[in-house]
Design a protein around this nucleic acid. Structure first.
Length: 656
RNA sequence: GCGCCCGUAGCUCAGCUGGAUAGAGCAACUGGCUUCGAACCAGUUGGCCGGGAGUUCGAAUCUCUCCGGGCGCACCA
């Protein structure tokens, strides 16, 4: 609600400033530092000071004169050196919130693609992957909350080196056949993704000790890419099983996908061949005939390095990016360019799809396949693409975008957004707790990098399990009368809330040094705190109804006059304002591409309510009008808290 | 060597496109459960915003520079 009023006032100012001073453009609004300054602050006078060559305070006076009366505004004051502070008409604002004017939602909006998770299907997911998936899923929810049509893609590199390494482990180290591995997958007592986690680390270790074994990898990779025999079949079996495990893990955190484009189909449907022709035709890449990249198709570094064009000739370092190796195989970046073209509908080719899985809530996720299937929907063809990938891969993302530019798809290059974030590392304390021995060098570092190859990291499911166990203990100590099943459900919702909030509270480019103590915290700035506040809103209303009362007819009791009366109370007014700023918060977070802003708002709103809860005793309020108002405000808090948590992918338990 | 990111309270972090007295959480200390659940609330202590220079009415925010830390810069992904 707040943002609609804010916009209306800004527009009114803009129109009148144009008439008076001939200045164009939108009027900037701010939140005043102190609530006593009013609801909106306009620094317009400062901006006009330069062109008008007058003191800001004088201009502010003239603006005030010119603006006159604006609907919904009770007063405008000049403050400081020239701020214009706007005070809302409280009664009108309250009445508008009560009427619940919803902004129109655009359902025919163009499609936005968000690609996230993208875990190599060769081992269990770890905390680093969780940050990616939670960030991506929350951004999807944010976009949808603002009316966008969004497609969530999870790219599966099922033919890459990492899968090959686990296949090598099974074939050469474990001497297992595809049938035996299938049996392992079917065995309920085996955590297949955990088994692969260890096997992958063991294979990497084996390569380090026996470099000649790298031949196995090369051979395996070749067989997988060409879909040959037992080895290729084994790779498919492993990758599919791990993808299922990942989707199960992510579903525990309320994360769902729409489509799983797989690398195997990119190969078999010859996406790359098509993209290759395009790149050659438009001279985006060239065949290198000398130097270290002799025999490769490369993209010149000038295409993706915007700065540093003053490289002296004497250096002579060839930092062109190889797209096609001298043996004729394509690199990851090449495939990614083809995939990115497909996402924009520019490739002139499409995948076919088969139903991969139906979630318990009925949502369906499709995977790419080579043959047409009855009833399969269409995917891809977005107007904007967000790739949620950690910042270490920004170099490769730059190359992909450069590929689009080289093909003269400028608009699409501009609409390709690397939604980057910093890595999740381990705090030294957590390493010690996990029994990881650190080198002296590592001990001095502020954090230690997670490594799948070394098997160094916290597995996602282990962390979730630990959180649930802790939450279950807390829930049980407070709600012994509840059934075990019900307590487990609440504990799970609390654990997921804690984890998602933990991953979201940091801004994207802040490195998270993962610490068990902080991740397991249930007090302070946590998802648990927000859930607790939300439960209290519901509890007030529930208890009120249980005591034999019926909720008043708010529209009848809270007339604009009554609303104005109640909102004279400063605490009530601030509460209403806080709760009305949800849309503003989400919109700003979307504009800034920063999910942490939503998390922060959720916390602030919960803080606001907790304070309100302490100040006002709704059930014991003797004045009927006041009580009606407090009940209404509690309900509003409740809705806004629950909706904000929904955007964060966090549920509200029945009790906790 | 080149590129990107970070440096704000004892610790972990916010601070939106420059704006009014730089904010939270944790930790420490004080107070508050006979009242809609104390996973809570109210309060106290704690900061040359890494150093320096510049831009201007105004800089934690923009520019330059130096210092410290992290990550990239493969015919791996």
């Amino acid at each position: 609600m707040f943002h609609q009023v804010e916009k209306r006032i800004a527009d009114a100012f803009a129109a009148r400033l144009k008439a008076q001073f001939g200045v164009d453009g939108p009027v900037q609004t701010e939140q005043p530092k102190q609530s006593s300054f009013g609801e909106l602050a306009l620094p317009a006078a400062f901006q006009l000071a330069r062109s008008l060559k007058k003191a800001p305070k004088v201009i502010a006076g003239e603006v005030l004169e010119a603006v006159g009366k604006i609907d919904g505004v009770a007063a405008i004051e000049i403050a400081g050196n020239g701020y214009l502070n706007v005070r809302f008409d409280r009664g009108a604002f309250g009445a508008a919130v009560l009427a619940g004017v919803q902004p129109e939602t655009t359902s025919d909006a163009a499609k936005i693609i968000v690609e996230h998770t993208n875990i190599n299907p060769n081992k269990a997911a770890h905390i680093g992957h969780l940050r990616n998936a939670i960030l991506g899923d929350t951004f999807v929810r944010m976009l949808r909350a603002t009316g966008s049509r969004v497609e969530a893609q999870n790219y599966i590199d099922n033919t890459g080196v990492q899968v090959a390494d686990v296949v090598v482990g099974f074939e050469h180290l474990e001497k297992k056949t595809a049938a035996e591995v299938r049996a392992l997958i079917a065995d309920q007592n085996v955590r297949f993704d955990y088994l692969c986690w260890d096997l992958y680390a063991r294979t990497s270790q084996y390569y380090a000790e026996h470099p000649e074994a790298l031949e196995w990898r090369k051979d395996t990779l070749h067989k997988i890419e060409h879909g040959e025999g037992e080895t290729a079949a084994l790779a498919h079996v492993v990758a599919d099983a791990i993808v299922r495990a990942h989707l199960t893990t992510m579903y525990r955190l309320n994360i769902e996908y729409d489509v799983l484009p797989r690398e195997s189909e990119i190969l078999h449907l010859k996406f790359w061949a098509t993209a290759f022709e395009l790149l050659k035709e438009r001279k985006a890449i060239f065949f290198e005939t000398e130097g270290k990249n002799k025999g490769c198709w490369v993209m010149p570094s000038s295409a993706f390095r915007t700065k540093g064009d003053d490289t002296p000739a004497e250096d002579n370092v060839d930092d062109s990016k190889v797209i096609v190796r001298s043996n004729g195989t394509v690199t990851y970046v090449g495939k990614d360019i083809a995939y990115q073209l497909w996402k924009f509908g520019l490739l002139g080719k499409d995948f076919f799809y088969h139903l991969w899985h139906t979630y318990p809530d009925g949502h369906k996720v499709w995977a790419s396949t080579t043959e047409p299937q009855e009833g399969a929907p269409k995917f891809g063809g977005g107007v904007r693409v967000y790739n949620v990938i950690d910042s270490r891969q920004s170099y490769l993302q730059d190359v992909v975008v450069a590929g689009l530019r080289a093909l003269d798809y400028q608009a699409q290059a501009d609409a390709s957004i690397h939604f980057s974030y910093e890595m999740v590392a381990l705090s030294p304390r957590t390493c010690i707790e996990m029994g990881i021995t650190l080198s002296d060098e590592d001990k001095k570092r502020p954090y230690v990098e997670v490594s799948g190859r070394k098997g160094l990291g916290v597995k996602a499911d282990d962390l979730i399990d630990t959180l649930i166990a802790k939450a279950y203990e807390e829930v049980s100590s407070r709600n012994a009368e509840q059934s075990e099943k019900s307590r487990r459900k609440a504990a799970t919702q609390i654990a997921v809330g804690a984890l998602r909030y933990f991953m979201l509270k940091y801004t994207r480019n802040s490195v998270i040094a993962f610490d068990f103590g902080e991740a397991l915290a249930f007090t302070g700035e946590t998802g648990v705190y927000v859930q607790y506040a939300t439960i209290r809103t519901k509890k007030i209303l529930k208890k009120f109804l249980e005591s034999g009362h019926a909720l008043p007819d708010f529209a009848a009791v809270l007339t604009p006059e009554a609303m104005a009366r109640q909102l004279e109370n400063e605490d009530c007014w601030q509460s209403l304002l806080d709760a009305s700023k949800m849309e503003t918060a989400i919109e700003r977070a979307v504009a800034g591409g920063e999910p942490s802003h939503v998390a922060r708002y959720a916390f602030q709103l919960a803080q606001s309510f907790s304070s309100f809860y302490d100040k006002f005793h709704v059930a014991g309020e003797p004045d009927p009008e006041k009580q009606a108002f407090l009940l209404w405000l509690t309900g509003y808090y409740s809705e806004q808290l629950e909706r904000t948590l929904g955007v964060l992918g966090i549920e509200v338990p029945e009790y906790m």
